[in-house]
């Protein structure tokens, strides 16, 4: 190993244990790694719970009006100023109480889901595409291409994630979902690129790649049909865990006042508003916090379960 700091051991912690996962089905077994993992996952309670939570969250994000009749922007200062939650009135606007502008906290929690899910998923998709492509090229071609790419990755890695996002976002006057997504993606693709590079290096010497090459397959065919499917497993796992991190990052930025802000709805900015009344009306702070933490938890649990299923060392 010419340079130990490129191997991915310096990326985030749970990632490190994954990076060396060997992809590829063991000989003599007809089932592929993926179908093996799938039959494993179907019987895992943590995967099923996380999957159900994520499914519900996606439905909420897509159709918030199915879950509440109240509008998240309708303010009733006279009647509902900081009214406490009525926890027995399920799914009604007063379920989680009202905030300092007389808006239903329940409705805001429901409508705030979309920002988190959309930003988390789009950042992950962009990062997966960009990071995989760059990592694959660096890992497969090696030599000077690898050296140049690795230096670029190192440079981006030199900027701590949230600090970098702050510098980007502070110069925008209005920050929509798109700007935040791009800011997080610009800083986030390097983790995936590093893991993909390591994974491709361990796969490219495999017999089936040599066989494909000796049969005269072109570079892109080898990359897309043979290398990519077998190098994908650790990358998918890292991306799933990272998704939770991106949701957390968006919320943190919105909380700090440089992410989404009114009139856009986000749990982070609602928590920021709620913090001022923490001693008189804890409920304004607590319900978006629970939703946010639960969402991140669901994606992390999913990532953990998938990692265990894809890691042949634990079999």
């Amino acid at each position: 190993m010419p340079d130990q700091n490129l191997t991915g051991t310096r990326s985030t912690a749970p990632v490190a244990e994954v990076a060396q996962a060997e992809a590829g089905p063991p000989p003599g077994k007809p089932r592929s790694l993926w179908s093996d993992a799938w039959s494993d996952l179907r019987r895992k309670p943590s995967f099923l719970i996380a999957g159900a939570m994520i499914l519900v969250l996606i439905i909420i994000a897509a159709f918030p009006s199915l879950f509440t009749s109240a509008s998240p922007r309708e303010a009733d200062l006279q009647g509902a100023f900081l009214r406490s939650p009525e926890l027995t009135k399920f799914f009604s606007p007063e379920w989680f109480g009202y905030d300092s502008q007389g808006r239903s906290v329940y409705a805001r929690v429901i409508y705030g889901t979309r920002a988190s899910i959309v930003i988390g998923v789009s950042v992950t998709v962009i990062v997966l595409f960009l990071g995989s492509l760059v990592g694959m090229i660096a890992g497969y071609f090696g030599g000077w291409v690898d050296a140049v790419v690795s230096r670029i990755v190192d440079t981006f890695m030199g900027i701590p994630f949230l600090l970098g996002a702050m510098v980007i976002l502070v110069s925008f006057d209005v920050r929509g979902k798109l700007v935040i997504t791009l800011a997080l993606a610009v800083l986030g693709w390097t983790t995936i690129a590093r893991v993909m590079r390591g994974s491709v290096i361990s796969v490219k010497q495999a017999d089936y790649v040599q066989a494909a090459r000796s049969l005269g397959a072109g570079t892109w065919r080898i990359l897309l049909r043979h290398v990519l499917p077998n190098a994908m497993a650790p990358v998918i796992v890292v991306a799933m865990v990272a998704l939770g991190g991106y949701i957390s990052a968006e919320a943190t930025l919105s909380y700090l006042g440089i992410g989404l802000a009114d009139p856009a709805m986000s749990w982070g900015s609602d928590i920021n508003t709620g913090k001022d009344q923490i001693r008189v009306a804890l409920h304004v702070l607590i319900f978006p916090s629970i939703m946010l933490s639960g969402t991140i938890l669901a994606f992390l649990m999913m990532g953990d379960a998938v990692r265990d299923a894809l890691d042949p060392k634990l079999r």
Binding site: A251, Y255, L282, S289, L292, S293, G294, I296, L297, D304
Partner: peptide
């Protein structure tokens, strides 16, 4: 540890403070 990882720092902060 899973809880600590999934609850964002500012939420933990207000929870502890409270």
């Amino acid at each position: 540890t899973l809880i600590f990882i999934s609850v964002p720092v500012f939420v933990i902060g207000y929870a502890y403070q409270n």
